[in-house]
């Protein structure tokens, strides 16, 4: 089993607040959050706006001091060995920020110099990797939002981190940019052996990219695990078949499953999660029901998200 590269151990953060001059009730932004991100994981961190994702990321990077709990990066306690721990990390929180009056290359050189020495040609390598080679001498203030996002990723890759902590890395990118960044992240994990802890509220992004996920709601982790395992446990199966009510009786009798009629968008059998499609197909064919389609639920993650979180401010969930 992989040793965890990033461990959040019973992390909590309470902010003291003021409304004008008056003291307001404290805000518990994160409560008793424990996560383990293993080496090689592409870990998705999901939650509605205001759930505490950014606060968690900031605590994981030492920007915000936790009220309780601790952060371990490769076994090093961030509170005690912050510098050594952060040497393994490349990160941006919220949006990547740069000095607009300096060129993209100069920004990369400066930020990389804070993390240690970089090898000759390293900057060209990351610029090429994020597709900015040729524009690196332009001042960042003329970069588009997408270019800044790419430059942010480039900055995270200098000098060769083991763990990337990224907050909405595809935010504001056009479809080409989104495709490229997702491909880059996959390649970083697969080919370079990096570990990625990715915060997002784009469900499709997490579903496309991640192998493990955690859901945060009002500062509390409401679910976490392997995405494939979650899908197996929570993804429904819709069976398109003639005479669905009779087919349902067959499935109940042969497989011992509860099946309900799905009324919308068109009639079909909606089966509870955990059913093997091939078993359903075989049973129905044996009973003489020609199966027109077996459709795993497309937006199961959105449904799961809505069932487990309270805010409705979630892009893609309503789709």
């Amino acid at each position: 089993m992989n040793a965890p590269l990033l461990v959040l151990e019973r992390l909590a953060k309470t902010f003291k607040r003021r409304w004008g001059w008056r003291r307001a009730p404290d805000l518990a932004a994160v409560r008793d959050l424990s996560l383990e991100i293993n080496r090689g994981d592409l870990f998705g961190f999901l939650g509605p706006n205001g759930a505490g994702k950014s606060t968690t990321l900031r605590m994981a990077l030492g920007l915000i001091h936790p009220s309780a709990g601790r952060v371990l990066i490769d076994g090093r306690d961030l509170a005690r060995e912050r510098l050594a721990a952060l040497r393994k990390v490349g990160a941006f929180v919220e949006a990547p920020s740069f000095y607009g009056y300096l060129s993209g290359r100069k920004n990369l050189e400066l930020f990389a110099s804070l993390s240690g020495k970089i090898e000759h040609g390293e900057i060209d390598r990351v610029l090429e990797r994020v597709g900015l080679l040729g524009r690196e001498r332009d001042p960042v203030e003329v970069y588009s939002h997408g270019m800044r996002q790419r430059l942010g990723l480039a900055a995270c890759l200098l000098p060769r981190p083991e763990l990337l902590i990224l907050d909405e890395p595809t935010d504001g990118l056009d479809p080409h940019g989104i495709r490229d960044v997702r491909a880059l992240l996959r390649s970083l994990v697969r080919d370079d052996g990096l570990t990625v802890f990715l915060s997002s509220h784009l469900l499709s992004e997490v579903e496309n990219l991640c192998n493990r996920v955690a859901f945060l709601d009002q500062g509390v982790c409401v679910a976490q695990g392997e995405l494939a395992e979650l899908a197996r446990r929570h993804r429904r199966l819709t069976v398109r078949v003639d005479l669905p009510d009779q087919a349902a009786l067959v499935i109940k009798a042969k497989l011992g499953l509860d099946a309900d009629l799905l009324l919308s968008p068109e009639e079909g059998l909606c089966l509870a999660p955990g059913v093997a499609p091939e078993a359903v197909n075989r049973v129905l064919l044996d009973a003489g029901f020609p199966v027109r389609a077996l459709e795993p639920e497309a937006d199961w993650l959105a449904r799961f998200f809505l069932e487990h979180t309270t805010s409705r401010e979630i892009e893609g969930a309503a789709a």
Partner: peptide, 14 residues
Amino acid sequence: ERGTLRACLVRPVS
């Protein structure tokens, strides 16, 4: 305000 402070502090900088 510009966000570059946090960009520095997510690096191994005291």
